[in-house]
Amino acid sequence: MTPIPSELPLELKYTKTHEWVRDEGDGSVTVGITDHAQALLGDMVYIELPDPGDALEAGEECAVVESVKAASDVYAPVTGVVIDVNGDLEEAPETVNRDPYGDGWLFHMKLEDPAELDGLLDAEAYAEMIAEEE
């Protein structure tokens, strides 16, 4: 399966560690890894997610995505509490390759401080960062 190349969604926020963050507008966010990250890692074979109720500090290791190639940590992009995780990934980790910004989301968390979102990268800044990496 060749992952479908996606444009960076403009409405999302990004981290330097290649997570994306969707502001749900109710004080919660959805978190996943970017298309760029999944393409670098290759076919996903196992994903370890946090537990609902876990309190996360921004920058803390909170999930692991394992591809055929390697295990890679996912970092909490903001501080808050996990309210839901994408249980479908247990049986179908390849969803992260196929649809990283949609069905391949990892977890949903309640923000401690909504202003923290302003400190994240916008699509343009993230695109610049990955262009520089290459």
């Binding site: 399966m1 060749t2 992952p3 290759g42 076919d43 055929v68 190639k69 390849e94 390759n97």
Partner: peptide
Amino acid sequence: PIHYGSQVE
């Protein structure tokens, strides 16, 4: 070549 799109495929 490490892969041509998908190693698993």
